[in-house]
Design a protein around this nucleic acid. Structure first.
Lengths: 319, 319
DNA sequence: GTGAAAGCGCTAACAA
DNA sequence: TTGTTAGCGCTTTCAC
């Protein structure tokens, strides 16, 4: 039904290999022949069959993009940017969602591996070892995970967390909770590391938690019971859930407790109080990760983050 | 490097066709042979090469999912659900974003067509005619678009809009604006149709508008100038932008103007005032669309929508 | 129940 | 510059 290289060849009286060359190495074919072929191809609506190309060349012109949760507002801008960048380079992208499950992540990588030229693993939940093993078969770029020798795009979470904590300290908070994210999350570990290195803090670690509103809601009781006056949450969703949970417990934000999120997603900007948070350059990360993958360079890119002070933080109430 | 069917065949002393059958038609092969083959395949980490399978069978086990804007919060739940459903049926999904551009949409369909077994076109901006033409080459399911003879998943936008308008009327509003969406949007047309059929309304049509916060912000002036006391917006993003724009103009919501959105996205629930809106079953639509596509049935599914009254609507101030 | 052989659409030496 | 040929990994008749 759909035209093949052979139809085009027949239509303009050349051999199939000439048609093939016209597309894959145009400089090797006579200009006159080339335009004849192009015209015929156009008339027939010919488009090369990517599966066949992949079979001979080993290149699929496909990329895999794996995220923990498509519906988490942090990811869509990253997906969008990666997809756009890939498109520019004539690549298509498979998007898949692991539902925060490391086993699903691994299986996904395995089934995708042969169909793509490389995989973007975003905020993986798999262990470094597991990722390294998988990377033996497929080019990888990881986002928000540091693995020796593997190309990565990192967001400087440690620096953002430090800034957030300094902000809290500057406001006069001493006893502060870190509401961490899922286990296996590099960003969560980075936040913890940054917190541990911040002097002058009476730190309470609460977690692991689900990286969702529900996770925040669920931990509200513990936060209230802990007696902290400030909280740094794993992400905005958790922060939002926490604020809601705290409100349910009669604890006001930022009156009694200050809360800082991470990611700077839209809902945080609209919430009352507007969320103080750390912006994450998700779109830039998506774009760069695609570039790294396609250029096959072993680079490590670290993107800056920045604290945005809004309304969910204030000086602690005097005891 | 990666094991092929031939490696497996050699490893257990059978012919390649037997190995092939073991996977594609297991009942045609002796149980003993089958388990021998399976064991060898497992040991070698064999996975069939999808490109090669596609070449012979014509089935790719890939799906295309095209949306207007991945970053619009309405779509991620749909994408997530579609992806999960596809995965269950052993399909992978290409996700692509048209940036609200009909030309990009068409080109995307064309380049994707040969690599997939079908395409899910969500809230397309292309004309019916253009879609029908494209559908000659590739199985399609459209979401939120009604095209004669084409499988579709629809959300009952007309009904939702009618409910929203009735709510406004019940509150005492007479002069109401419909802030429509992008041209080419079926949902926008449905809303307009429903509005036109609602009696007792002094209707002002404002649009087309971009389906984003910016779109809402930009139209705020016109809304204020129009003298309406109620607004039905194309979606929550527009409604949110509009409320913000109105606030900038010193117009309070719902004090002076009531605003209703569409989609029920998270930011709307967190906004102050919390947005009165119409829920759209995006996840269900994604799931069903995949089912329709893979079952190849020519069905038309219409999903219900429902008004959720929150805080952005109230009785009009007495003149 | 299994093997042999042809071929899916394309590319990549090699020859002419 | 173009044609010839073999083959990518797999499925699918057709024989045995």
């Amino acid at each position: 039904m759909t035209a093949t290289i052979r139809d085009v060849a027949r239509a303009c009286g050349v051999h199939v290999s000439t048609v093939s060359r016209t597309f894959s190495a145009p400089h090797l074919v006579n200009a006159a022949t080339r335009s004849k072929v192009l015209a015929a191809a156009d008339a027939l609506g010919y488009r090369p069959n990517r599966a066949a190309q992949a079979l001979t060349t080993g290149r699929t012109f496909n990329l895999g993009l794996i995220v923990a949760d498509i519906a988490n507002p942090f990811f869509p801008p990253l997906i969008k940017a990666a997809q756009a960048q890939a498109r520019q380079r004539d690549y298509h992208v498979f998007v898949a969602d692991t539902d925060e499950d490391p086993r699903a992540e691994e299986e996904l990588v395995r089934t995708l591996a042969k169909q793509v030229d490389g995989i973007l693993l975003c905020s993986p939940r798999l262990s470094n070892r597991a990722i390294e093993r998988l990377a033996e078969d497929t080019p990888f770029v990881v986002v928000n995970r540091r693995i020796k020798g593997m190309p990565a795009v990192l967001m400087d979470v440690g620096q953002g967390a430090a800034q957030a904590l300094d902000h809290l300290i500057g406001l006069g908070h001493r006893k502060v909770a870190l509401v961490s994210g899922p286990s296996g999350s590099w960003t969560s570990d980075e936040m913890r590391r940054a917190a541990a290195e911040t002097p002058g803090l009476d730190l309470v670690l609460l977690g692991p938690n689900q990286p969702t509103e529900e996770g925040g809601l669920a931990v509200a009781g513990d936060v209230a019971a802990s007696g902290v006056t400030g909280v740094l949450a794993y992400n905005d969703l958790v922060a939002l859930g926490l604020i809601e949970g705290l409100a349910g417990l009669g604890v006001t934000v930022p009156g009694e407790v200050s809360v800082i999120g991470f990611d700077d997603i839209l809902p945080g900007r609209l919430n009352r109080p507007k969320l103080t948070t750390v912006t994450m350059p998700a779109a830039a990360a998506g774009r760069l990760a695609v570039d790294l993958l396609l250029q096959g360079e072993g680079a490590l890119v670290t993107l800056e983050t920045a604290l945005i002070v809004r309304e969910s933080t204030a000086a602690p109430r005097q005891a």
